[in-house]
Computed example of a mutant assay.
Amino acid sequence: MGRRLVQNITSEYLAASSLLHKRNRVMVYVEGYDDIPFWRAIFDEFETPDRRFEISTPARNDLAKGKKVVMQFIPQAGKHLILCVDSDFDYLFGELCERSRQVNQTPYLLQTYTYAIENYLCYPPSLHSVCVRATKRDTHIFEFEEFMAEYSRIIYPIFLWYAYAARVDQPTIFTLADFRNAVKINFVNVEDNGEDTLEWLEKQVEKRLRVLRSKHKQRVAEVEEFDTYLRSRGVVPEETHFYMQGHTLLDNVVATLVGTVCNALRKMAVGQILGSSRQGLPLNNELSSYNNVLSDVDELLKSNTGYRTCPLFVKLREDIVRILES
């Protein structure tokens, strides 16, 4: 029954339905519930009185979700049924494997170009604004772009091994769990813009890299060739954060980074209030008023839309325009 429903939902069916309702209805299938707000925010720009988008997980009786499920609709996709997926490594792998070819060549399938939507949520130029919304204090005490560029440069050599393991379908070479542990940051010193953290991280990466090269000597030359290939796809070490596993970036790096900066900004704000001339009840009221307007950092990161100037997002937006104008 589920399979028959999959076969019946086509772009042509939705086009006919649009004629009945005298308004273009474009169904947009995404991987999961968390993806719906992200894609909704994007398609809002393109909605008109004559065109309405409906963002949803795939229509299946078994409620199955995920990238593989979305890609089952490739034969039915069209102007009225658009498919949206995380790139994972498919954009980087280009034509190297069948699924990557499908993702890169399907006309009515949109991909993030970053590994996942979380990489956009962590776009470095937008992180200061996240801190401002969380703390209601617009003071530059940390250079996010500078830190993330250096962080990316440092982890690139082991990212290369992780991506290579995925490319040759040998995840035991360097597992996701090992990669997460190797690139995770546990502390950040705001005063030195994370310099101590980066120095510590570089030592950890060098240790891990020595182990990988020693354990897999026969693969070193292939990894070096793969490095050349990735760079030909536009990857540069300072932008590794676009292509690494999204939840690893968000949960193990950026959440810690932004949380630490926000804590510092809150302390500054509270210190300013405590140093004022107010005393007693007026002082307590001011502190209470400030605490009441603070926002949750994790929730703000999840709803961050400050990635729209990102070159990879611009590429994604151009794909949407191409589909709608075809």
Rank of each mutant, 00 (worst) to 15 (best):
Q170T: 10
K215S: 07
R210A: 14
V183L: 13
T175L: 03
L201F: 09
L209R: 07
V168A: 01
K217L: 15
E202I: 06
N181V: 02
L176A: 08
E199G: 01
R210W: 11
Y164A: 04
D192H: 04
W200Y: 10
R208T: 15
E195D: 13
N181I: 01
Y164H: 06
D169A: 02
E199R: 08
V190H: 07
R213F: 10
W200I: 09
L198K: 00
L201A: 08
E195P: 04
L201R: 05
A165W: 15
A165V: 08
S214T: 12
A182N: 11
D196L: 13
Y164I: 08
V183N: 06
I173L: 15
V205F: 08
I185K: 00
D196K: 07
V205K: 06
N181Q: 08
I185D: 00
K203Y: 06
R210D: 13
V183Y: 09
A182I: 09
R213W: 07
D169N: 03
K217I: 13
G194H: 09
R213A: 10
S214K: 15
E206G: 02
K184A: 12
I185E: 00
T175V: 02
S214R: 13
K184F: 12
P171I: 05
K184R: 15
V190C: 12
L201N: 03
V211I: 15
R208Y: 14
L212C: 03
A165D: 09
Q170W: 09
A177L: 10
E191K: 04
